[in-house]
Amino acid sequence: MNLRLSAGAAALALAAALALTGCSSDDDTAASSTSTPAADEATPTAQDVAALAGVRVEGDPGSEPTLAFDAPLSVSVPTTRLVSDGTGDALTDGARVDLHYVFFDASGERVGSTWQEGNNTSEAVTLGDPNLGVINDVLEGTHVGARALVANPSAGEDGETTTTVMLLEVASVGEWRAQGEPVTPAAGLPTVTLDDNGKPSIAIPEGFEPSDDLVVQPLIKGSGAEVTAEQSLTVHYTGWLTDGTQFDSSWDRNVPATFSLQQVIPGWTQGLAGQTVGSQVLLVIPASLGYGDAGQGSIPGGATLIFVVDILQAF
C-alpha cells in the first residue's frame, strides 16, 4: 500500500506548525536539559540554548501555561528544553502520546492552544514518528505530566526568519490498537491472532477460495464515530497474499499510517467506510478492487489481498 506514514492529523499539524527538521539527540532528558543533536546534524548554538533557557513557564501543570521571555526570541535551529518530567506512566517508542500544547510567536503573543476556548482536547501523536523531529528527542524517556519547550525558526511570507516557541505537556500515554467489543467472524475466513502489542497474524484455512466480491468482517467493534468515504484515517494494518505471505505492515514500522480514503485502493474505501473508529476489520479484497491485473511491487497481478486494519482516528 502506498500510504503516507504519520502519527495522524495531530502529528502533521504539529510538524507543519513548527516546520521541524528532524534533528536527533544523543543526550538524556534530565530536567532543565537542552537536547544536543548528533554531530552530523544541526546543533543548537550557545545562544540558542541561552534563548530557550530564558523562557519562563508560568502556571500549574494540567492547565494552560503562560510563557514569558524577552522579545524577540530567536534561535538558529530547532532547540528543545525539558522543563520538568512527569510522575505518570513512562513514554516508550511507538506509544500513543496525548499532548496539550500552546504556541507563542517571537514577540510573546499567544498564537494558539489545545486548551483554548474551553475545548481542552489533547492531540495524539506517536513517539518515534520521524515527522515529530526534535519533539521525539525531548520526550524520550520522560513520563506522563512532562513539560517541554520547543523553539523553531521558520521563514515567513516576507522571507524573514522568525521563531515560534511551544510548550508541550504530556496528558496521557497509551497503545495504538483497536479497542471495543469482540465480534465472532463468519466461518471459513482466515483466522486472526493478535500478539501482546496488538499486531495481527493470520492462518489461512486449508482449501481457502476467496470470493470475487469484497469481504468485510469486523473483528472488534469500536465505539467511535462512523467513518465516511470522504475522511482521512489513522490506522495500523498488515497485508497478506492468500498464501499467507505478508507484503506490508505498519506494525513493523512501529508507526501508524495516515491516509485519505479517496487515495487508496477501492477495497479499502468501500470496506472501511461505514465502520466505526476503534474497530478492527478483516478485509478480503479481490484484484478488481485492489491492484488489478498489473499488481504493484511484490503484489502480483490478479492477487486477492487480505488486510487486518485497526481504525485509530478519523478526521
Rank of each mutant, 00 (worst) to 15 (best):
H143C: 11
L12R: 13
V227I: 14
D105I: 03
E169I: 03
L305K: 09
A42R: 15
E181P: 02
D70I: 05
T191H: 11
D195L: 09
Q217D: 07
H143L: 06
R253F: 09
A39C: 05
Q116P: 04
S35P: 06
E58Q: 02
T191M: 09
F247W: 12
T269M: 14
N152Y: 03
S107I: 01
E160G: 13
G224F: 11
A146F: 11
T114K: 09
T184H: 08
A148F: 02
G141D: 14
Q262V: 15
Q270F: 02
A53T: 00
F259H: 13
A203Q: 07
S249A: 11
G156F: 05
S279Q: 13
R253W: 07
T193G: 10
A294R: 06
T79K: 06
R110I: 03
A95G: 11
T34H: 09
P190T: 03
A106S: 06
V227Q: 11
D40F: 13
S107C: 00
M166H: 03
G290I: 02
E169P: 01
L52C: 01
L214M: 01
E58S: 00
N197W: 01
L139M: 11
A146I: 11
I306F: 04
Q116W: 09
D137H: 13
L73C: 05
T92D: 15
